[in-house]
Design a protein around this nucleic acid. Structure first.
Length: 154
DNA sequence: GCCAACGTTGGC
DNA sequence: GCCAACGTTGGC
């Protein structure tokens, strides 16, 4: 079982939005970055867990935990001309973009903010990609150690 | 709103 | 294959 971190802008889709979804489950779709795509398509499995991270907001940080509850599947938005994630170059016979279903596990009683994460010396020794310069990926791998440290912080 | 740090596109 | 121009992300 692997661990991940999934970023979302709370204005677009927050942890509370996920809670409000049927069965607390919703496709994690609209990912249009090849590195992130590769991780979803090649490395994600049912039963993996992920931190839910709020980005581009007042207090960026980790707000909860979710579980991956489907195998990777072609992102249907890529085939929908109505969607802003429509990609005419994605061929249904050879899909370019992938999604997984995520299911709500828990909301942290307090956010573990980015500034708190930056201050955690233990975490800084682990090369946490979220804290590394220039990182913009919306899907990041998290090690078991990092998962444990951050879970303890919450 | 600014801007650094990317990623993508497309002409050559 | 190079690289300039452009677009996006995301913290501040």
């Amino acid at each position: 079982m692997k661990y991940w971190l999934l970023k979302s802008e709370p204005d677009a889709f927050s942890i509370d939005d996920l809670i409000a979804c049927k069965n607390g489950t919703e496709p994690w779709d609209g990912i249009r970055n090849y590195q992130a795509r590769n991780m979803i398509r090649d490395d994600m499995n049912i039963g993996d867990q992920a931190f839910f991270y709020h980005s581009s907001c007042k207090i960026p940080g980790i707000v909860g935990k979710v579980e991956i509850t489907s195998e990777p599947f072609p992102d249907p938005l890529a085939f929908n001309p109505e969607s802003k994630y429509f990609d005419p170059k994605s061929d249904p016979a050879n899909p370019r973009w992938f999604a997984v279903n995520v299911t709500f596990i828990e909301k942290l009683s307090d956010i573990v903010s980015l500034s708190q994460l930056k201050q955690n010396q233990k975490l800084l020794t682990t090369e946490f990609p979220l804290l590394q310069k220039g990182n913009r990926l919306s899907v990041l791998p998290v090690t078991t150690l990092q998962w444990r440290i951050i879970s303890q912080m919450s």
